[in-house]
Nucleic acid binder design. Structure first.
Lengths: 225, 225
DNA sequence: CCTACCGATCGGTAGG
DNA sequence: CCTACCGATCGGTAGG
């Protein structure tokens, strides 16, 4: 059964949340496109998502996304770049909080207690970045990495280095104090992998909260003494 | 500079490894297709790989893969199914080896030593399945899961359950003996995630061997007492 | 940002 | 398994 179209309505009434009369929406149509693209890329994959799908999701016509982004690839890159920037910002904020309990921790001589505080905040912030509501940007970055040009890849690789920078000293300190047993380099890869994979199975409807996940990860990775 | 085509040669001399005169290749063209598809799906992604690419990789023409598989999706499914079957077989073999040192271990009352033996073999076999030379099938299964129909997904979900079945009792035993601290259910997800993510960073050219990875994983996840 | 459109590519098929 | 082909869809553009 189909719904008869009302002849007085325009052909495409769905999807676009019209602004109130006379208001211009200016540059934030671009943000809407980014969010819709991130969501669809995450759900369906980059290659399997058409630019028409993205346009439709924000109530545009098929050619219009190209007014905001010069190519589908540029849109993907913008999603990833924004994802990394917000991930880095969230992480920095989390580390500020960790530091506030111990006003002057030095990165070069982290005490065992500092390091345990910091790894917890790093892990918790990472889960938030991956699994928090509406946070589709970084998962896209993690799983659609292949679809970028070498040039774009290298820009993002640098952002990833920035993101991962705080993990090194923390893991080193934990290793030195006997709380971490594996070689630091491999430990970092395995730990981040365990966290990143949560994108595949985490269900916000179900049992575990992000705090539960953080506790479990700490219990799994860290030794007690 | 281009090479002038030799006029006496057929148009498409590349790619197909011709059998010696008169030999029929029968059913193993299908296997060649599977292997080529697995490799391309892994490298390029399912959606971004065309059936023409796959055909060309084994020296066929564009329509010919559909003589062996009724659709591109069926080809993907076959890759994944074969991947899971060989993963399950490899794992079973590894556990046999683990058992041979202790002839009659009971699954219900695993000693702490049994469990440590078994987790090591489970992890090692898992790395082999993911990272071993030519083992593209399971990585495709892990990363292209989205592209399947619900029906196919449920078949593979059952195979995954079979695969993961041995992990449960082993992790329970390790938890009971104090070698594993996190809740068993989350521990399983995090551990398998850490291993699965290795597909993203492992480089067979570089440093670590699969044994190194296994040692690091054991050191990271298990407590000493 | 819409309209109208293009060339390219894609999965798949009929017939041999 | 090849030949020859089709309809659909796709990323992208010119012009307003």
């Amino acid at each position: 059964m189909t719904v008869a179209p009302s002849p007085t309505l325009p052909k495409r009434p769905r999807g676009r949340p019209r602004k109130t009369e006379g208001e211009r929406d200016d540059g934030n149509r671009r943000q809407e496109l980014l969010a819709a693209a991130a969501h669809l890329f995450r759900e369906t994959g980059f290659s399997a998502t058409s630019t028409r799908d993205i346009a439709a999701a924000v109530g545009m016509h098929s050619g219009s996304p190209f007014y905001h982004f010069k190519s589908k690839e540029a849109l993907l890159f913008a999603v990833m770049e924004e994802g990394m920037h917000s991930a880095i910002a969230r992480q920095a904020l989390a580390l500020q909080v960790a530091d506030s309990s111990d006003p002057a921790p030095s990165l070069e001589v982290l005490t065992a207690l500092d390091a345990q505080q910091r790894i917890r905040h790093l892990i918790r912030a990472h889960f938030e970045t991956l699994l928090g509501p509406g946070n589709d940007f970084v998962p896209v970055m993690l799983y659609e990495h292949r679809s970028l040009s070498p040039r774009q890849r290298s820009v993002l690789a640098k952002l990833q280095l920035d993101y991962e920078a705080p993990w090194g000293p923390v893991l080193e300190a934990l290793h030195a104090s006997g709380h971490l047993n594996a070689p630091v380099k491999l430990a970092r890869l395995l730990i981040l992998g365990a966290l990143n994979w949560s994108v595949q199975w985490f269900d916000p409807q179900k049992a575990a909260s992000l705090d539960d996940l953080t506790d479990a990860a700490i219990a799994l990775f860290l030794k007690e003494s």
